[in-house]
């Protein structure tokens, strides 16, 4: 197979797998790669009922490899000070089970991976907060990372600028929940609950959430703090801290972020032109059916954009499916959209 020129190369579609079923559906629906995590705090979706046992990873890797697809293992939290060994063991497990690459954030984990498995592919997780080509170069110099996932805070022109100044492959987020804060640098959740993405692989953990019926409607609290207050007929979202309603200067509003989802499907030809190597779908916590539907839409979109970029148009059917699936039923281009700044 000849290598297509960089500018014309369709980016890999990287899809979330919170379970073996989701992995299989994603692959059948056209994912080039799936990413998954172990059932512990070593990954940033450390939720009950999610993630993989060693046997399931082995089975998943077999399923993917038999179809020419890849499995990436997310090991993207920070190793605990009292016992970092589960993180180092997870690196070794990933290699033993045949994962194609590790998605990593902690310099300690990268150092171990590089030392113990010099040929292992490392992808710099979004949780490592590399927002410039110099920060990416830092991780390439010391740990030989081959890909970096860019935080969802960069504009399209900033993404392009990074791409022009690095040889490291670049992956961007395409669709899913939107972190308005720079990933890997947000302690809002631990401030309210004690547990954060960096220290526990969770954000606004379900164990801290309380729904309370009141005369005026429904209050939702995170460890006792009132995050939102819904009128009886108002649609309710999951109380992610940054998406609650608060009072600033006497005005009650979504002070940080409205409960929208990121959707960059309209920008695909531009992302391809810039040389983005992979597009990531967020949502290991979502159902297998969700993953299947989103993967189908994005497979069709990437194929269309790569085949005839000039004639690319977002199909109404894609929009309808994604809108139906999106959190809060609203889409945003996030930072990629200029007016957002």
């Amino acid at each position: 197979m000849t290598e297509p020129s960089l500018a014309a190369r369709a980016p890999d579609l990287v899809c979330p797998a919170g379970s073996l079923r989701a992995l299989q559906l994603a692959i059948d629906a056209g994912a080039d790669a799936v990413y998954l995590g172990l059932r512990n705090a070593t990954n940033a979706r450390n939720f009950a009922g999610l993630n993989f046992s060693d046997d399931q990873i082995r089975e998943g890797v077999e399923y993917a490899h038999a179809r020419g697809r890849q499995v990436l293992m997310a090991l993207n939290t920070y190793a605990r000070a009292d016992d970092p060994s589960p993180w180092f063991r997870a690196v070794d497990t990933a290699v033993a089970l045949g994962a194609d690459a590790l998605i990593v954030a902690d310099t300690a984990v990268m150092a171990h991976a590089r030392r113990a498995h010099p040929r292992l592919r490392l992808h710099l997780s979004v949780q490592a907060s590399a927002t410039s080509y110099e920060a990416i170069e830092f991780h390439r110099t010391h740990f030989g990372i081959q890909r970096a996932v860019l935080p969802r805070v960069l504009t399209l022109s900033q993404v392009g600028y990074v791409l022009r100044h690095t040889d490291v492959e670049i992956e961007v987020f395409g669709f899913g929940s939107l972190c308005v804060m720079v990933e890997g640098r947000c302690a809002l959740s631990s401030y309210a609950t004690g547990a954060s993405p960096n220290n526990a692989g969770v954000c606004s953990p379900p164990s801290a959430v309380r729904w309370q019926e009141t005369d005026a409607g429904v209050d939702v609290r995170l460890n006792g703090l009132l995050i939102d207050r819904y009128a009886p007929d108002e649609p309710r979202g999951y109380p992610t801290l940054c998406k609650g309603r608060f009072i600033v200067d006497g005005e009650r509003d979504y002070a940080l972020e409205e409960p929208t989802s990121l959707n960059t499907i309209a920008l695909l030809p531009e992302l391809i032109r810039l040389g983005v190597r992979a597009v990531k779908i967020e949502g290991r916590q979502r159902s297998p059916a969700y993953v299947q539907q989103v993967t189908r839409v994005w497979r069709a979109a990437i194929d269309a954009a790569a085949a005839e970029p000039a004639r690319y148009a977002v199909q109404p059917g894609w929009t309808a499916t994604l809108a139906h699936l999106a959190e809060g039923q609203q889409h945003t281009l996030g930072a990629l959209d200029r007016p957002w700044r």
Partner: peptide, 29 residues
């Protein structure tokens, strides 16, 4: 304050303070 600064300072061979926004959560890091 971030990976960019770490890159530029370490390339320059300069000693530096590891700031509070650099993610150091264990001894190995």
């Amino acid at each position: 304050g971030d990976g960019s600064a770490l890159q530029l300072l370490s390339q320059a061979g300069r000693p530096f303070v590891i700031g509070p926004h650099v993610n150091v959560y264990n001894r190995e890091a």
